[in-house]
Nucleic acid binder design. Structure first.
Lengths: 116, 116
DNA sequence: TTTATGCGCAACGTTTGGTTGCGCATTGGG
DNA sequence: CCCAATGCGCAACCAAACGTTGCGCATAAA
């Protein structure tokens, strides 16, 4: 129900800071560790490590530009991640609906036979 | 774009082990730390701590039954969590689509004016 | 050629997921 | 009634992850 690879993706996007970074990168198109850390309560180092994690799972890609290291979201990979999130969500939803349906069915059949 | 409360929910369901526990609880209806740990590569203690976390954010609820402590998923809360997952996923998707659209627009206007 | 900016590496503290080893309560069989 | 077995919580301990500070090095700008 969950492969090791998918777990890596999950733990990458499970961190709130990394989700914020993805949001910022999506909003501004691209950014460096320094520029991103400017708008966050984090040091450049922390941001840099997070970007390294996102890079390792392929959610962002770095293009060196002079002395800068400009990061950009890999759209295909992020789409994959978004699909996974939605999948888990709808899976839970489906199960909850099924449970609710069964519960109602039992309730109804009890009303027919018993008077509890 | 993300409240502290929501971050707690996220970090709760961000952990792979806790998602597995939720799956198991959904599948079997209810369970104790001991019964759940039996089917996992975890000690009872680890499971117990995870259940405590899930309990604190309200995703599961415990009902003492004799010397046992039976846990059950709080369906409303889980539905809320599922909605959040889906929300983030679709938010990213929407942004990606918008970006792609803009990119195509620029590309097209460049083809008209420049020959680069 | 200096100066300043951007980055990576290393050492360190703190939180979190996991383990083991207790002790305490409840339950069930002599 | 009592004693073994079962289920749980608490505390101590380890390892990995997130964050910090303090370097040093390279590249761009003065």
């Amino acid at each position: 129900m969950s492969t090791p690879v998918d777990d890596e993706l999950w733990s990458a996007i499970g961190d709130p800071t990394r989700r914020t970074l993805i949001d910022l990168l999506l909003a501004s198109g691209a950014g460096t560790a320094t520029s991103l850390s400017a708008g966050l309560p984090l040091t450049r180092q922390a941001v840099s490590k997070h970007l390294a994690v996102l890079d390792r799972v392929g959610l962002v890609r770095a293009e060196p530009a002079g002395r800068e290291r400009r990061y950009r979201v890999d759209e295909a990979q992020l789409a994959r991640a978004a699909a996974q999130l939605a999948a888990v969500g709808t899976s839970w939803d489906a199960r909850l609906r099924r449970i609710k349906h069964i519960a109602e069915t039992i309730e109804r059949s009890r009303d027919h036979t018993e008077g509890e």
